[in-house]
Computed example of a mutant assay.
Amino acid sequence: MVDTPQESTPPTNGADGPDSTSERPKKKPRSFWRELPILIVVALLMSFLLQTFIARVYLIPSESMEPTLHGCAGCTGDRILVEKIGYHFGDPKPGDVVVFKGPDSWNAEFHSTRSSNVVIRGLQEVGSLVGLVPPDENDLVKRVIATGGQKVECCDSQGRILVDGKPLTEPYVVNDFPFTPGVQTCETMPKSGRCFGPFTVPDGNLWVMGDNRSNSADSRYHIGDEYNGSVPVDNVIGKAVAIVLPPSRWGTISSPNPQSN
C-alpha cells in the first residue's frame, strides 16, 4: 500500500488571500509645524472666551485704592483678577471692589492708547479681544458703598459715612480728609473734605468710592452729572477677587460689607 502525497494548501488570512494590512504604507505623523497654526487658533479662541465671559486681568493705574490696591507713583501697579460670572446671577453688594466702565462724565481725563496707524490699531483691537492688549476704554476700580434707593451722606459726629442714616464701618480706609469734632466738621468753615450729600442713589445704580478717600475722583467728584455721581450697574465689568502680580502682593481682595456692623 502506497501513501499518496497530499497537496499542501497555503494558509489564508481571509477571503481575499494573504493579509494585505502589513503591506499598507504607514501614515506619517503630522508635522508639528502643520499643527502649530491650529494650536494657536484654539489657544486664542480659548483666551477670548475666558476673558470675555469668565475673568480678566486688569492693571491698577492710580493710587485711588491705596493701600488695598497698589497703583502709586513710582511703584509697581497691582494686576488684579476680575471675575465676571457672579454678577450674571446678582448685583454688586456694598463692600465689593468692582471694575466698571466710566460713564461719559468720568472720561474727561481718559486718552486712547490706540495708534493712529490703521494697521497697528487693527492689530491692537485684535490683541485686546484675546487679552494681549488692554481694552481701549476708561476702566476704573472702586468700592461699592451704597446701592440703588439708598441715601448716602457724610458725616456723622465721628466723621463716618452714613447710609440710610446708619454709620459705616470701613477698616479698609487708611487715608482720609481731616475731621476733628469741634474744630473741622461739616458745620465749620471751612468744612472737612469728607463732607457730601445727602444723595439718593438712583435705582439700578451704585455709589462707589476709592479706599484712598483723600485722593480718589469717585462718586463724590461727579455729583453734578446725570446720575448724581453714581454708576449704572450695567457698566460694571466684574468683581476684583485677587491680586495676581507682582508675586510679592499675591492674595485675595477682601469685600467686607461696611453696612453690616
Rank of each mutant, 00 (worst) to 15 (best):
V208T: 03
D139I: 02
I80S: 00
N235E: 10
F89S: 01
C155W: 06
S116K: 15
L168G: 00
R143F: 03
G210I: 01
V126S: 09
S128G: 09
K151E: 13
A242Y: 03
I40Q: 11
S115A: 12
R79W: 03
Y227N: 03
L245R: 12
G149T: 10
I38W: 14
P5K: 12
N228S: 09
V130C: 08
P61K: 12
R30I: 04
L140N: 00
C75W: 14
V98C: 03
D164S: 10
L39W: 15
L39V: 02
F110Q: 07
N215I: 00
E137H: 07
K93Q: 07
E63Q: 12
G77R: 14
D3P: 05
P247G: 08
S216Y: 06
V98L: 03
E7R: 13
V42Q: 14
E170M: 03
T252C: 03
N138M: 08
N205R: 04
G77C: 09
T4Q: 15
G224M: 13
P11R: 13
R56H: 09
P135L: 00
G122C: 11
E153A: 09
N235G: 03
V236L: 06
T188K: 13
G224W: 09
E109S: 06
D203I: 02
R194K: 15
E66W: 05
C154E: 12
C195S: 07
D218W: 03
P25Q: 15
A73D: 14
Q124D: 06
S47A: 15
S8Q: 15
